[in-house]
Structure formats: structure tokens, C-alpha cells
Design a protein around this nucleic acid. Structure first.
Lengths: 110, 110
DNA sequence: TCGTTATTTCGATCTCTGTCGAAATACTAT
DNA sequence: ATAGTATTTCGACAGAGATCGAAATAACGA
């Protein structure tokens, strides 16, 4: 995970419609949902939906698998975990932490 | 936490410069960093930096406290936790999960 | 092949965002 | 008050993003 990738993923999730899509897929689990299923729930034009799915796909936040004429979308859980890790990573690395008056490394130095 | 707030926070973090700022503040811990300190490291015009800080502030991702002429910025750790929770929340609530062949609730039903 | 359903691509429009320099404001110290 | 430092606001511009309808493509079954 690096800054550029993390930012692009955040940007993808920074649109309310895409965040809804993504959360639907997270909720749906490994079975995922077809694009058409998403469209029914979202009630937006399919071209708009396709546009958003492409963004999520490009950001590697979802995967797609064809099944006949329908296209199954799934959340990429691994990417989600990485992103979350990146956000919280190195919390207080350069300073004191909120919960502990002294950092572990500083305590070790004493 | 709701969708609109989460999306606006994601959007805020979806810009590389802002993500850098935010991570610097996360690393800095409770002591935070002055705007000027951020500017030295980022090497961007102060007007641009101010613009980004305002976005992060509006999204409730950072806080600011005046200390004389300098303005201390700090990451809002609570907001970060909420956001992370929102992302991972209700994973697989509507379907089977990746790791477990059957969900806990289904297993309980058996 | 033909028709039907599912999905994407195209092209247009409109709005929003990032960036900057210049000017304004906030605060402190003298 | 005045000068000096820190930060924000303003106004402008270029570029990116969201949205849509229409047309194109993909996959299937009769």
C-alpha cells in the first residue's frame, strides 16, 4: 500500500453513490451482487452505475466476474483491510499517543 | 456515522496532498503540528495548504487550536475509528462470509 | 440468425476541485 | 501604534468528475 493507491481508493469511496455500492457489496459477502441487482436498489441509470463500478474496479476495491449475461460484483476484502491498515498505521509514530502518556519505545529507553 | 458523513470524510482523504497532511498528523500524535510545520514539509503555498486543512476540518477529520499566531492541527482519532468501523461494519451481513463457510448466526440455527 | 436481456461506451453538459498569487486578517512583541 | 510573523480569504483558471440518454456491445436461447 502506498499513498497514491490509498488516495485513489479513498477518492473512489468518497462519492456517496459509490460508497453505497461498495457497502452493499461488503454486506453481500462472497456471493456478491450482479450489476442489475445494484441498479434495482439504487434506482440510477445503468450508464451511471457502470461508470461508478468502473471507478471502484480501477481502484481495486471490487472485482467482477461474468456469469452469462450478468456481471457479478464483489467487494475486495483484502484491499479494504489494507486501506484500513494504511489509515491507522504508524499512529503517533512521531509523537506521544492519545491513550498512553509515554510511548512504548520511550519507556524502553528509560 | 452515516453515509453522507463517511463519504465526505473519504472524499477529504481522497486527495494525495490531504492524505499526506492527515497521515503526518496521525503520526504526530496528540501534540499535533502547526500549519507552518506542515507547510515546511509539504513545500506547497500556504494558501493551498490552508484550503486543504479547511477541508479536513470541515470533514471533522482534524481539529485546530490556536496558540498565539500559530495554529496547531491534530488528527481526530475518534473520527478515524468511526470511519474505519463504518467501512468494515456489517461485513457479509446479507450473505456468506469469505473466511467462514457458514455464518455464525446460521450455525446457531443448526 | 434473430430477438432479448445485461452491461458498457460515447458524447454532451454542468458542477466541483485543485492550484496559485495577491491581499486581507490574526496575533504578538516592541 | 507599528512592525513582523502566521494564516486565511479572495478571485481566477484549468482540469476532473457526476450525470444522463442514446447507441453500441456481449451473451444467451429459440
Amino acid at each position: 500500500m502506498n499513498l497514491e493507491i490509498a488516495a485513489s481508493q479513498m477518492e473512489s469511496l468518497g462519492n456517496p453513490t459509490r460508497l453505497r455500492i461498495y457497502r452493499m457489496l461488503v454486506r453481500a459477502g462472497i456471493d456478491g451482487l450482479p450489476v442489475g441487482g445494484l441498479q434495482q436498489r439504487l434506482e440510477i441509470p445503468s450508464s451511471t452505475l457502470s461508470h461508478h463500478c468502473k471507478k471502484l474496479l480501477d481502484a481495486n476495491l471490487i472485482t467482477q466476474e461474468r456469469n452469462g449475461t450478468t456481471l457479478i460484483c464483489r467487494a475486495n476484502y483484502r484491499a479494504m483491510s489494507s486501506l484500513i491498515g494504511y489509515l491507522a498505521d504508524e499512529c503517533c509514530a512521531d509523537g506521544r499517543c492519545e491513550d498512553t502518556p509515554t510511548r512504548a519505545s520511550e519507556a524502553a529507553d528509560t
